[in-house]
Amino acid sequence: MAAKSDPAMLEVAGLTLAFGEHVIQHDVSFDVKRGSIFAIMGGSGCGKSTLLKSLIGLLRPVAGTVRVLGEDYWAASGVRRADLGRGFGVLFQSGALWSSLTVAENVALPMRMFTSLDEASIDLLVRLKLAMVGLDADGGRMPAELSGGMRKRAGLARALALDPEVLFFDEPSAGLDPVTSRRMDNLILDLREGFGATIIIVSHELASLFAIADDGIFLDAGTRTPIAHGAPSVLRDTCGTPVVRAFMHRGASGEARHSGTNDDARN
């Protein structure tokens, strides 16, 4: 790893994302400090999840760099990228559990693949991770038997399997009831405090963003570029940009309805 004094965990500079000719976002730049909770915000269809994909190695950006602890992620070889990726934990929007494995096997698989632990140890760690997300009694069930919220928590337990340094959450509280959503927020805070993990959240759930995020970026669907940087609560109180204000106040100011969302369904 680079021996800088305090390198940002993740540095994104001049990133342009596109599907073919269709540019999703351009000139995206931000740093994520180690141990912080960073929010990627914006209306539906603005390219939040696409940006996330380029950070976790699923979509190569057209231009710009992503540096992980000072190392250029996309310039690295595929093998090196996989190595770096092992330090990432990703919670996908719907959990993305492997449907033919039980919940416990889902959590165990990364450990079986990338560590030389024996079965008893893996079993203990799997129970630990499942207990952390409150699913200790459900390890033997199949993903299809779980509710949406449970699937998300099981996905989180799997993301924690290898004790990642960076955790990515794609809409962690979308589709959850307010109480469960609140519990997810607390869990995210606990994981940050407990493991010292750096956390990047893609979300448009305002309540949870205000409660947990330290820093963030706001992607605009109209201009296809970030238009505000800062903690969500600070943006809510001080940002003068109409689009951001409208978003942060649930459209109450009603000034910028035209560019709040985009026509395409990607988010």
């Binding site: 450990m111 560590t115 030389s116 632990l117 024996d118 140890s121 760690l125 290898l162 004790d163």
Partner: peptide
């Protein structure tokens, strides 16, 4: 560190 095998000795 879990992945370095400390778990093996826990019991």
């Amino acid at each position: 560190i879990a992945r370095n095998g400390c778990v093996d000795t826990i019991d």
